[in-house]
């Protein structure tokens, strides 16, 4: 399989590469237009701040390319948020692939939402073999509210989108690459799509 991980200097790229390596998959790290376009599958990692990440994408013209992709695509954490329309973080216009807004947590609870929390209402083959209430690892201060594109939920304290699907674009707010065996299973499921 020709798997490409989008390279735009996101902080968790190496972790995603290692997680794939543990599954016996060697992905290609690339920011090259043609290489990404030709991939069978694309993983879009990300941690950090939305406006800086968008600037990195624009500097590589990836803001034009990514919305045109048609192969199975998996955005992780900030990589999920960047697929949406707009983020309250830095009042940033995002890639606009999924027509949703990214909001900051307004809660008495600690922010960032950091640690292991549970998945509910799992849908789609991305969660094949996972049980309801499975634990995954989160670290984020912004979230996507529930929508018709939500394929898994987590509560903090209100339910939000743990994962999204829109056409060929799958995305997870949590970190499958850091979520133990459950996370590995989700990556495996994506690779099997």
């Amino acid at each position: 399989m020709n798997l490409v991980i989008v390279d735009y200097k996101a902080g968790n790229v190496q972790s995603v590469m290692f997680a794939l390596e543990r599954l016996g998959i060697n992905g290609t790290l690339s920011s090259d237009f043609e290489t990404i376009k030709a991939a069978d599958k694309v993983i879009f990692p990300g941690v950090g701040e939305a406006s800086s990440a968008m600037a990195q994408l624009k500097a590589r013209n990836l803001d034009k390319l990514l919305p045109t992709l048609e192969q199975p695509f998996f955005g992780v954490c900030l990589g999920m948020q960047l697929l949406c329309q707009h983020s309250e973080e830095g009042d940033t216009d995002l890639l606009g692939i999924i027509p949703l807004q990214v909001m900051r947590f307004q809660t008495e609870l600690k922010v960032p939402h950091m640690g292991w929390n549970q998945l509910h209402h799992l849908q789609t083959p991305l969660f094949e073999g996972l049980k309801e209430e499975e634990f995954v690892y989160y670290v984020h201060s912004y979230y996507v509210p529930l929508s018709e594109h939500t394929i898994a939920q987590t509560s903090y304290p209100e339910p939000f989108s743990a994962a999204l699907q829109y056409k060929n674009f799958y995305a997870a707010q949590f970190h499958p690459e850091k979520s133990g065996p459950a996370g590995s299973q989700i990556l495996k499921n994506f690779l099997a799509l």
């Binding site: 902080g11 941690v47 950090g48 701040e49 800086s52 960032p112 670290v139 201060s141």
Partner: peptide, 9 residues
């Protein structure tokens, strides 16, 4: 560091 990499790290 927070600006460059995000507060989460």
């Amino acid at each position: 560091l927070a600006k460059r990499f995000g507060s989460q790290c």
